[in-house]
Design a binder for these strands. Structure first.
Lengths: 337, 337
DNA sequence: GCTTCCAATGGGAGCGCTCCCAGGGCACAC
DNA sequence: GTGTGCCCTGGGAGCGCTCCCATTGGAAGC
């Protein structure tokens, strides 16, 4: 290690000493609290500059019982779930909102047992001021842990089961309904759904939305063709669909990855898109734009999701009681439908 | 907030009291340090369980002067740079390695002025035990800050300029050379390069690798056609290339996004890939697989990059002096070349 | 001129943990 | 019986900050 600076960090006491004031006054000056004369305030500022003083966040955390950090926990049995660019966008939003509140972002991938244990400890030990929880599974142990933790918790996307007290979600059902209605409005009558994992609330809600739209149009809904939100699973689901229902003329895929997979299978099967089969995805990630043909999809405000989660968490930390939020989606017509 | 647990967290003192030992003994038992009799150790364990005691990480951090966290700082003037799935993969690797060392991961997007200021404070105040720095620009103020910080710092990817003391990088030049040699081995003689930003070391090194390969084959290198690593910039660069050199028959794109953009432009221009123009990308992200045609590309071990950065940082924190690491790349032939 | 009040001040007690160190106790060798 | 070690043990001093509280002194009000 570079030992260029062998001298310890200056402490508040040293600042106070140099400024000729007490530690209390120095502290107040630093946090620009009242009851500090202009002269002393300036003396403290001068001393801070002269010493290159930077407050020790750990000591402050201990004294205030606030860590100055919020955690974003991403559940999932496989760490690579996080490789989905979806989370990256969530983080961009969350990070910006936390920055405004001067909170640091801790990222916890609770994929392994050890990871989950560490999250539990975090929750129990108040190692953060609050937690954002995402991608919980059905019966995810994190849900129980979060409930027991005496700490603000915001859910990103509702988990399966009863809705938590505080969450931010996207209007999955509404978006799926709109996508399906769009396919129907195009004259498609044999519209199938490639679902995401049905042990996630997003997977279920999107299928619900599809089903509602199909039923409302007086058509017959297809049984859910389940994938796992990955491109290969979408390709496989599309293949199964073609085998069972060769006359399918419209497909709602519960996310863009699976939609892209479906496009690939259709291309390999010699079906023209959208002439023979129209396809709509969900998410509006990069993959939708670069798919061939570019995928008509349901845009969900992912960055906003992260931002709103963080804002809700900050409100909670500030002792407020925000209301859950459901963000709107928007259909983005491209070439695949 | 749910006030189900209005009682404070038990402290070590309370554990010690219940176990009938001193705080010192309780502390030693907890950290399973020596000099604790079997009987007292068990008494402490019992008390811990009975009270549901969880150590306060902040207090421990203050006493040990170790925060128990490592930060991953992603620079860049635009927060959305982080939306690149590249970083998500790095995080998967880094997170796993940090988990092994029982360190938490703090994520800092140093895009805004405020973000940079917070990183500086983190560095100066030892708000983390170590820092991983990525995506630094030329003359990035973070480089100087990192240098001055009395804290272990590992670079992910070398910054422009003199190599830092500790870094993990990918063999950018080697990968680019291999990609270009591959194009040449296919009989292409007019091989162009769509470069990434040339104010990044990766952008420069990849162009260098391209240039070396072209020169070694006795061909004429094209002037760098600069993009910014995004799909549209790749498309634009390809259009410019076609305008200036209609006879181009091979393209090395410095990353997959730009490669995908190039494919799009070629398709729109009616050029067949790879018959008329062969294209090779770099990164081997999802986009390469789903591009049309699937993009031949240079795989770089992104997760390993994150893992090795974290391991190097842990070694540094442990007082060791690891050596810089350059990870190998691998050509992945698909259909575009 | 004498209360009344309040801004300004600094002392000191924590926050919950680690770790140094002096002091027992006990076994073993002399 | 007296040493010589060791292993345990618990007291206590921090780590660096915040914040309560008692104290002071000067301005304002009568």
């Amino acid at each position: 290690m570079a030992e260029d600076a062998p001298r310890r960090h200056p402490t508040l006491d040293e600042v106070a000493g140099l400024a000729g004031v007490s530690r209390s006054v120095a502290s107040r000056a630093l946090n620009n609290a009242p009851h500090v004369s202009r002269a002393k305030r300036e003396a403290v500022e001068r001393a801070v500059r002269q010493l290159g003083y930077v407050p020790n966040p750990t000591a402050r955390a201990l004294a205030t019982r606030q860590t100055g950090a919020a955690a974003l926990v991403v559940s999932g049995e496989d760490p690579s779930i996080f490789a989905d660019p979806f989370f990256a966008q969530v983080i961009v939003g969350a990070s910006a909102a936390l920055e405004e509140a001067d909170l640091h972002l801790m990222l916890c991938l609770a994929a392994t047992d050890r990871g989950r244990k560490r999250v539990e400890e975090l929750l129990l030990s108040r190692g953060a001021d609050g937690v954002m929880l995402m991608a919980l599974r059905e019966d995810d142990p994190l849900a129980r842990m979060a409930e027991e933790a005496a700490m603000p918790v915001v859910f990103g996307g509702r988990p399966v089961g009863p809705a938590p007290r505080w969450y931010v979600d996207v209007d999955n059902a509404g978006g799926a309904r709109e996508a399906t209605e769009y396919l129907i409005s195009l004259g498609r009558t044999r519209v199938a759904a490639i679902c995401g994992r049905l042990d996630t609330e997003a997977g279920r809600a999107r299928y619900r939305g599809y089903r509602d739209a199909v039923l409302a149009a007086g058509l017959d809904p297809f049984a859910p063709q389940e994938g796992d939100f990955t491109e290969p699973s979408g390709a496989a689901a599309m293949a199964a669909l073609l085998a069972d229902h060769p006359d399918v003329d419209g497909v709602f895929a519960a996310n863009d990855n699976m939609g892209a997979g479906a496009l690939r299978t259709l291309r390999e099967a010699g079906r023209r898109v959208p002439a023979d089969v129209a396809v709509v995805g969900f998410d509006d990630l990069t993959v939708a734009r670069i798919a061939d043909p570019p995928l008509t999809t349901v845009h969900q405000p992912v960055t906003a999701l992260g931002r709103e989660m963080a804002r809700m968490l900050v409100a909670l930390i500030d002792g407020q009681d925000p209301t859950p939020l459901i963000l709107p989606t928007r259909l983005v017509p491209r070439s695949s439908a």
